[in-house]
């Protein structure tokens, strides 16, 4: 996949979850652009949480405060809302979050056996992060890839069908960096950024449209 912005390239360089801190300067610009996409600011709450996670690997306290400020909501509303969602982490997680699906289709294909092998390989139980913040292991609900059961995700990228041998290889490849092009750092949802209508107001691009104007016809 071709990345279409310097910002994304920069975010992809991060190779460990950060300890804390707010948005980068570019990140704040992205945040403003995301907010401008929506008829009402608060709609950008989850995209901004993803943005924060893309920068730090998790949603830091500083980012909670900044998001609250940008959207005109309280910090409790930001953290409370974020905590509803499984993908959003309010505490640091590993560089690679491995989510093993154990729902019905995967279970029928041996998902619990796979999860057990994963726990053994990584030396942590599901729900835990290893001590050097490398791997976090999760037991996931159906990931929507049941044709490749049992399947798993690493930082929301799919692998499957898996068994204990292919799992071992996956870990080796992740650790060696062999999968760097496939698996971005945790939290980077999309390596492609929207270009149109983000800056609609100051571009005459044929395809651009002012989203506010559009919202009101």
């Amino acid at each position: 996949m071709k990345h279409n912005s310097d910002y994304i390239d920069k975010v992809l360089e991060r190779n460990a979850p950060s300890a804390g801190g707010g948005f980068s300067e570019e990140g704040l610009k992205r945040a403003e652009a995301l907010i401008a996409l929506y008829p009402k600011k608060r709609s950008a709450l989850i995209p901004l949480c993803h943005l924060a996670q893309g920068e730090h690997g998790w949603i830091t306290e500083e980012c909670i405060e900044e998001i609250a400020g940008l959207l005109g909501v309280s910090p409790a509303e930001v953290s409370g809302t974020a905590s509803f969602y499984d993908m959003l982490h309010l505490e640091p997680v590993g560089q690679y979050v491995i989510s093993v699906c154990t729902n019905i289709a995967c279970m029928l294909a041996g998902a619990y056996e796979l999860l057990e092998a994963a726990e053994e390989k990584l030396g942590i139980a599901a729900g835990q992060t290893d001590t050097d913040m490398r791997f976090t292991l999760e037991e996931a609900e159906c990931l929507g890839a049941c044709d490749t059961a049992p399947c798993l995700q690493v930082n929301s990228r799919f692998f499957g069908p898996m068994n204990s041998a292919s799992f071992d290889k996956l870990i080796t490849d992740l650790a060696s960096g062999a999968l760097a092009g496939v698996v971005p750092p945790h939290g980077v949802l999309s390596r492609v950024e929207r270009v149109f209508a983000l800056t609609a107001k100051d571009t005459d691009d044929a395809g651009a449209i002012d989203s506010k104007e559009a919202g009101q016809k």
Binding site: E61, I64, E65, A68, V73, S74, P75, A76, E77, V78, S79, G80, T81, S83, F84, L90
Partner: peptide, 21 residues
């Protein structure tokens, strides 16, 4: 002044402040 809100989901839904305030 919504300094408290629900956090979490399902039967682990709790009332919480933000971690910051």
């Amino acid at each position: 002044d919504p300094q408290i809100d629900f956090a979490g989901r399902g039967d682990m839904t709790i009332v919480a402040t933000s971690p910051t305030r």
